[in-house]
Lab assay of single mutants.
Amino acid sequence: KKVTINGVEIKFNNPEEAVKFALELAKRLNLRIEFHGDQIKIE
């Protein structure tokens, strides 16, 4: 399963991993996060 985070394609074994990764990243950098299907936007 491929997920695009800020235009960067990252391959994950499952979608939950991708979501956890994105949330952790957003929390660490104190950023806002948006989900659009397989696209995750962090700003």
Rank of each mutant, 00 (worst) to 15 (best):
K1Q: 10
K1P: 12
K1H: 13
K2I: 15
V3F: 06
V3W: 07
V3D: 03
V3G: 03
V3S: 01
V3Q: 02
T4D: 02
T4R: 05
T4V: 14
T4A: 04
T4I: 14
I5R: 02
I5S: 01
I5A: 03
I5E: 02
I5M: 05
I5T: 02
I5K: 02
I5H: 04
N6I: 08
G7Y: 06
G7Q: 04
G7L: 08
G7E: 03
G7C: 14
V8E: 04
V8W: 12
V8S: 04
V8F: 12
V8C: 15
V8P: 02
V8D: 02
V8Q: 06
V8K: 08
E9A: 08
E9C: 15
E9K: 05
E9M: 11
E9F: 10
E9N: 05
E9Q: 09
I10R: 03
I10K: 03
I10S: 02
I10A: 02
I10W: 10
K11A: 11
K11Q: 12
K11P: 06
K11S: 12
K11T: 13
F12G: 02
F12H: 01
F12A: 01
F12N: 01
N13D: 12
N13L: 12
N13I: 11
N13H: 08
N13S: 12
N13G: 08
N13F: 10
N13E: 11
N13T: 11
N14F: 11
N14A: 06
N14H: 08
N14C: 14
N14M: 08
N14D: 10
N14I: 07
P15M: 14
P15W: 15
P15K: 09
P15G: 10
P15T: 12
P15Q: 09
P15R: 13
P15S: 12
P15C: 15
P15H: 13
P15I: 13
E16F: 12
E16W: 14
E16P: 05
E17F: 07
E17R: 05
E17W: 13
E17L: 10
E17Q: 09
E17G: 06
E17H: 06
A18K: 01
A18D: 01
A18C: 15
A18T: 04
A18H: 03
A18V: 09
A18L: 11
A18I: 09
A18E: 01
A18P: 02
V19G: 02
V19C: 15
V19I: 13
V19Q: 05
V19R: 10
V19N: 03
K20F: 10
K20M: 08
K20S: 06
K20W: 15
K20I: 08
K20Y: 09
K20V: 06
K20C: 15
F21T: 02
F21A: 03
F21I: 05
F21V: 03
F21W: 13
F21N: 00
F21D: 00
F21Q: 02
A22M: 11
A22Y: 08
A22R: 00
A22W: 11
A22D: 00
A22P: 00
A22K: 00
A22G: 02
A22N: 00
A22Q: 00
A22I: 14
L23W: 07
L23P: 00
L23H: 04
L23C: 14
E24L: 11
E24C: 15
E24Q: 10
E24D: 09
E24P: 01
L25D: 00
L25M: 09
L25K: 00
L25T: 03
L25V: 06
L25H: 01
L25Q: 02
A26P: 00
A26G: 04
A26S: 06
A26H: 01
A26N: 01
A26Y: 06
A26I: 07
K27R: 13
K27V: 06
K27G: 08
K27F: 11
K27M: 10
K27P: 01
R28S: 07
R28T: 05
R28Q: 06
R28N: 04
R28F: 09
R28I: 10
R28M: 09
L29F: 11
L29E: 02
L29C: 15
L29G: 04
L29Q: 03
L29Y: 11
L29H: 06
L29R: 01
L29N: 03
L29A: 03
N30W: 12
N30D: 04
N30S: 05
N30P: 03
N30I: 07
N30M: 08
N30Y: 08
N30R: 11
N30C: 15
L31D: 00
L31T: 03
L31E: 00
L31S: 02
R32W: 06
R32T: 07
R32V: 07
R32H: 06
R32K: 10
R32C: 13
R32Q: 05
R32A: 04
R32D: 02
I33W: 05
I33E: 00
I33F: 04
I33L: 07
I33D: 00
I33Q: 00
I33T: 01
E34T: 13
E34I: 14
E34Y: 12
E34D: 05
F35W: 12
F35M: 06
F35Y: 08
F35I: 11
H36F: 12
H36I: 14
H36Y: 12
H36C: 14
H36T: 12
H36E: 11
H36A: 11
H36P: 03
G37F: 09
G37W: 08
G37K: 09
G37C: 11
D38W: 12
D38H: 06
D38N: 11
D38M: 07
D38P: 05
D38V: 06
Q39A: 11
Q39E: 14
Q39T: 15
Q39V: 14
Q39S: 12
Q39Y: 14
I40G: 01
I40L: 05
I40V: 05
I40M: 04
I40A: 01
K41V: 14
K41H: 09
K41G: 03
K41N: 10
K41R: 13
K41S: 09
I42Y: 02
I42A: 00
I42E: 01
I42G: 00
I42D: 01
I42F: 06
I42W: 02
E43C: 15
E43D: 09
E43K: 11
E43A: 11
E43S: 14
E43Y: 15
E43Q: 11
